[in-house]
């Protein structure tokens, strides 16, 4: 499915989505509140069938955080990038780990590195950092005078 057809399909699922082009794949901007039901439909829809979440990460834009989900379909071989803009002080988004199981670990990583809280995540603990770590290391304003070496 090419980008134009994808746009039509996605707008049918959720009219409020906006699109951005220019990158390698179609970028889809979604409101965090709409994301979970939209994600369910993305996986369930037979024409879209996005069953492979191959990358889940977060970007700190200093004013806000953006969740980035790279989705692909192993059946139709099309790819989209879904973005959710989150508030930086209280970033909350619904988990998608019941749809794509791989999200469980990736969300735990984003949780400890960016402080994004994933609602309804079954096991939201720190995965890589020690349990008593303070701060969110991958945020742009994170300072660690001992361990961080500035070039």
């Amino acid at each position: 499915m090419d980008n134009e057809a994808l746009k039509i399909q996605l707008t049918e699922l959720l009219p409020s989505v906006t699109f951005e082009e220019g990158g390698e794949w179609l970028n889809v901007n979604v409101d965090p509140n709409d994301w979970k039901p939209f994600a369910v439909k993305l996986k369930a829809s037979a024409e879209l069938y996005f069953d492979y979440l191959f990358c889940l990460t977060c970007v700190d834009w200093k004013t806000h955080l953006t969740m980035v989900y790279h989705l692909s379909s192993t059946k139709h071989r099309h790819t989209i990038v879904v973005k959710c803009k989150l508030d930086r002080t209280t970033p909350v988004v619904e988990t998608v780990c019941d749809i794509w199981r791989t999200a469980e670990f990736h969300e735990r990583e984003v949780f400890e590195m960016f402080g994004v809280e994933f609602k309804n995540h079954p096991d939201l603990r720190k995965l890589i950092l020690p349990a008593d770590w303070v701060g969110f290391p991958l945020r742009k304003d994170y300072e660690d005078p001992i361990n961080m070496i500035k070039l």
């Binding site: 970007v59 790279h70 199981r101 791989t102 670990f105 990736h106």
Partner: peptide, 15 residues
Amino acid sequence: YRIKFRSPGFSNLSC
């Protein structure tokens, strides 16, 4: 500005 390595082992371990 931001770089993310999607490593194969991380996902393989989760299963």
